[in-house]
């Protein structure tokens, strides 16, 4: 269940992880991208913190919407449009339900609408999809998250900047998959996965 409190705990922890792992995420983005994923998301994390500190959200919808708008306007890359759309779709769905599985499923649908990718293309979708499935069954675990992230390593990228290097993308973790892994680890730790 995603209450306003759980959402705030979840996202504050995610922002903290992003600022700690900023350099690592940008490093991952270097061989198969343009080396900015950590910096992009760190800008977003700062903007989220600023928005949430400025005004305490009245409810879950307002919290999710504030997170989305910070990501959309400050990240400035594919990941900003993608995470931003995911949170915007979660915000919309949160008017009708607080069920984590339904909210994450709406987020995943938003990601797919925005980026046109499906599973197996070496993107953050490869983490979101198994996480949504596991959450529906009420059994998201750290191992499911870690395995999904690791599974992007042997994939060949066919979407995003990594697709331009073709076969050379094989053998590297996808940076967006790794940052999505942090997002769901934070969710587990905040108690929002059930």
């Amino acid at each position: 269940m995603l209450t306003t409190d759980i959402i705030l705990t979840w996202i504050h922890d995610f922002d903290k992880k992003i600022s700690e792992k900023k350099d690592y995420l940008s490093e991952l983005d270097t061989p198969i991208g343009d080396g900015d994923h950590g910096n992009n998301l760190a800008r977003g994390a700062e903007a989220i913190e600023a928005a949430l500190n400025k005004e305490t959200p009245a409810d879950a919808t307002a919290a999710l919407r504030a997170i989305a708008m910070a990501l959309v306007s400050k990240v400035g890359g594919a990941s900003g449009a993608l995470y931003g759309t995911a949170f915007l779709e979660m915000a919309k769905t949160s008017r009708d339900t607080t069920k984590t599985a339904d909210l994450l499923a709406a987020g995943l649908a938003g990601l797919q609408k925005r980026g046109g990718a499906t599973t197996g293309e070496k993107t953050m979708i490869d983490v979101w999809a198994p996480v949504v499935t596991a959450t529906k069954g009420g059994q998201l675990t750290q191992k499911i998250i870690d395995d999904a992230v690791a599974a992007t390593k042997p994939m060949r990228a066919t979407k995003g900047r990594a697709s331009y290097v073709g076969d050379s993308s094989i053998g590297h973790l996808d940076p967006g998959a790794v940052s999505s892994g942090y997002l769901f680890t934070s969710l587990l730790e905040a108690g929002g996965a059930k």
Binding site: A81, L82, R114, R161
Partner: peptide, 11 residues
């Protein structure tokens, strides 16, 4: 030009 420009354009 490239991918994320399209995503932000569509938004």
């Amino acid at each position: 030009d490239l991918g994320s420009a399209k995503m932000n354009l569509e938004m």
